[in-house]
Write a protein that binds this DNA or RNA. Structure first.
Lengths: 153, 153
DNA sequence: CCAGTTACTTGCGAATCGCAAGTAATCATG
DNA sequence: CATGATTACTTGCGATTCGCAAGTAACTGG
């Protein structure tokens, strides 16, 4: 029996948006997936300006939804390491398409020339993201995709 | 000079979420793209339960962002026909990936067996969506993709 | 022991949401 | 042409959420 708390339709898009449909959740997932961020502090200083109480709430929601896990760091127990679950890493395609759309249609500082390789190497890029996740490779993806993805400052 | 009103980063994902990052905007786009909806009333009765004032605001925002257009119907001037722009139809890949993710990882009433054909026929599906848009074909996509996508009621 | 760091929580004013009701313009009918 | 229905909204209002600033508990390094 599917438990559906809200009064919305059962459409998969609707269900997805119930969890991820806000300005912050997917940015947190992006930072974990592509920039290799793990900690509260990193998300807070990611340049997007999320408030700490909202960040706290989002991490709890993503955790409750099974998209991320939270475990305290072994070597420094102040820190909590947030990681994507399998369900979380599966958001990579959606995130990539949002990236491509924004880069193509909005003023993002991303040159148009940079978009085509993204669409052409889509599968390779997604495979690389998944590989990094499986091997717990903490290095950001920038080296592979170019620095233009996240303009410094 | 790129005008960036908010204090967020210039990352394409961030820019996309500034416009689309809420519970309703992409559902409206979905209804236009896949179900062939055009009018205020249709969006209101789409089964998601969006309030009329919020719907009004979203249509204005999407219109201002160049994702949809609004023109009054020639034969009935009470009605306003909302249509996707080229920029709007380009959201199809992102929407499809959100659909696949939701269907795969959440309880949506969509059988798991239905997901694989979506990923396999991704390109064909997107081509069909774009064709329907170019030809202004108002028929919903259901016939092609199966009725399970939007369970009745 | 103590200053600094990390991951939060709390308080509060402002913005947004959800719901109900109302309204202007237009169309369909008698 | 009058009347009622329909469409696309707007308005009001209480409840929720947001953004910002400040505070706090747990822990670490010196």
């Amino acid at each position: 029996m599917p438990a559906r708390p809200s009064s919305r339709s059962g459409c998969p898009v609707s269900v997805s948006l119930e969890i991820l449909g806000d300005r912050w959740s997917l940015l947190i997932v992006r930072d974990m997936m592509i920039r290799g961020f793990r900690t509260f502090k990193q998300f807070q200083n990611s340049g997007e300006g999320i408030a700490s109480n909202v960040l706290s709430g989002r991490l709890r929601r993503l955790s409750a939804a099974g998209i991320i896990t939270a475990e305290s760091d072994a070597s420094d127990r102040r820190m909590i390491n947030y990681r994507l679950t399998d369900k979380g890493i599966d958001l990579a395609p959606a995130l990539l398409e949002l990236l491509i759309w924004g880069a193509r249609h909005e003023n993002t500082g991303v040159p148009c020339a940079a978009i085509e390789p993204l669409t052409k190497n889509r599968e390779a890029l997604l495979a690389e993201v998944r590989r990094r996740w499986q091997q717990r490779d903490p290095a950001p993806l920038q080296a592979k995709t170019g620095e233009w993805l996240w303009p410094e400052k």
